[in-house]
Write a protein that binds this DNA or RNA. Structure first.
Length: 419
RNA sequence: GUGGCCAUAGCUCAAUCGGCAGAGCAUCUGGUUGUGGCCCAGAAGGUUGCGGGUUCAAGCCCCACUGGCCACCCCA
């Protein structure tokens, strides 16, 4: 038996109402903020991600689906949206568009990871990027997109975790301070944390190791090392967030695994969906476009995990609106009634009325059973009597009332009743 | 990549000490002419995830693989 590859899943019809609900809200909220939709390819040159996301990050070093195509090109299934969107910004000269350029995407992301609840090898994200403006008001605006969306979806008790990772001017000093602080306590760190210290000291802040916790409480705070520009940026953003009553916690241990972040980073956590609680995460990346060969252009964005959003909605008991379904079934009795029934179905559909056709030579009883399960409002029965009278027998499935309706008048008859 | 738990019908789960693989739901059919939901009856549905091993005998014990869940790592 074949099965879906590890870490992938089929999104079955039963789950579709959630997906439709969530993605429609995403489009609606994007429209409220003037975000324009962009779709970039699902695969890109491997080097785009190596340079964009950063060599040394787990994503690039261990998690990319990279392959060679028949022409020998090294391609990678996108492990995130940002690099591809930046590539498109540069390639299409979006720096001549009115700035900032505000873009969003919805689509699949691929990372070779060990699957668990809320974490998949193929997952989907709602991604927002705003390019070409470094006003902290843009940070506020981008966070507001996430805020508005999650609120509309039914999330309660929302709170942002925010931090500033500094910039190329101030980050080295903080990094150095961390290294110096922990160097004195090497013996109290376990192997994983010691490796972090050597490779990416900032990641130590994220450690969940028992032994590291006490040290972390005394470790230098990033806030003490920010340059005045970064400190001002954070302070201004916080003032804006406060003014708009968007609860946030400055979490100096919030560090993110992608190298390109500068200044603002933020996440939104959801409760009750296990350890993979970050439902939304992003930040500012003011050097990225330049790094990828474009003009110096600041940017900020976030990704929101659709699977995690849906997990959380389910956990909160939020019910999505049902998907539209046919309100009418046409049930022919006997061979002679079939073609008239097919014609009737076409006529109704041309009039915009959804129709199920009963197949096979099932008994009327079985057909009504199916109609009942499909939850249609009316079953239109065509048998010998109806054929002779050029009519249909319209059964109201709820009231059990039946009425012989001339076939010529059935569209109007249904329209009145289904309105 | 590391560790723990797990895998029986489409789904949720039983199966005593290792001794003939079962139930509920779902599906299909029937309960007398062309009438649904409730009820009743019946049918179909399984190489017990896959491959080995131990044993007279394996769903059950052992090994490996695959997959799921949970926690790391990392991230959305």
């Amino acid at each position: 038996m074949f099965h879906a590859p590890r870490g992938t899943q089929d999104i079955l019809p039963a789950d579709r109402p959630y997906w439709r609900y969530v993605t429609e809200e995403m489009h609606a909220v994007a429209a409220l903020f003037g975000l324009q939709q962009i779709d970039t390819p699902i695969f890109e040159e491997a080097q785009l991600f190596v340079r964009g996301v950063g060599e040394g990050t787990d994503i690039v070093d261990k998690e990319m689906y990279t392959f060679q195509d028949k022409g020998g090109a090294e391609l990678t299934l996108r492990p995130e949206f940002t690099a591809g969107v930046m590539r498109a910004y540069i390639e299409h000269g979006m720096h001549v568009w009115p700035q900032p350029v505000k873009l969003y995407s919805i689509g699949p992301i691929f990372r070779y990871e060990r699957p668990q609840a809320g974490r998949y090898r193929q997952h989907h994200q709602f991604n927002v990027e705003v390019l070409g403006e470094l006003d902290p008001a843009v940070d506020l605006e981008v966070m507001s997109v996430a805020w508005t969306l999650l609120t509309r979806l039914g999330f309660r008790g929302l709170r942002f975790q925010i931090n500033s990772t500094g910039c190329p001017v101030c980050r080295p000093a903080y990094r150095q301070a961390l290294v110096e602080f922990f160097a004195a306590y090497q013996d109290r760190l376990n192997e994983v944390d010691r490796r972090r210290l050597a490779i990416n000291p900032l990641r130590l802040l994220d450690s969940k190791e028992e032994a590291a916790q006490e040290l972390l409480n005394r470790a230098p705070h990033s806030s003490d090392y920010l340059c005045s520009e970064c400190a001002d940026h954070l302070a201004t953003l916080r003032r804006y967030l406060d003014a708009l009553a968007m609860p946030h916690t400055v979490n100096f241990r919030l560090v993110r695994g992608l190298d390109y972040y500068t200044k603002t980073v933020f996440e939104v956590w959801a409760e009750g969906i296990g350890a993979q609680a970050a439902v939304c995460g992003g930040g500012r990346y003011d050097k990225l476009i330049e790094m990828l060969g474009g003009p110096p252009t600041p940017g900020i964005g976030f990704g929101m995990g659709i699977e995690r959003v849906i997990l959380s909605l389910k956990q909160q008991g939020v019910r999505p609106p049902p998907l539209p379904a046919p309100a009418v079934q046409v049930s022919p009795l006997g061979e002679a009634a079939r073609i008239p029934a097919f014609r009737l179905a076409r006529t109704l559909r041309e009039a915009g009325i959804g129709v199920l056709v009963a197949f096979g030579d099932r008994s009327l009883k079985a057909q009504l059973k199916n109609a009942d399960k499909a939850n249609v409002a009316y079953t239109l029965i065509i048998g010998e009597q109806e054929l002779a009278a050029d009519a249909v027998l319209a059964r109201d499935m709820r009231s059990h009332e039946q009425e012989v309706v001339p076939r010529a008048g059935i569209v109007e008859w249904l329209r009145r009743r289904l309105a």
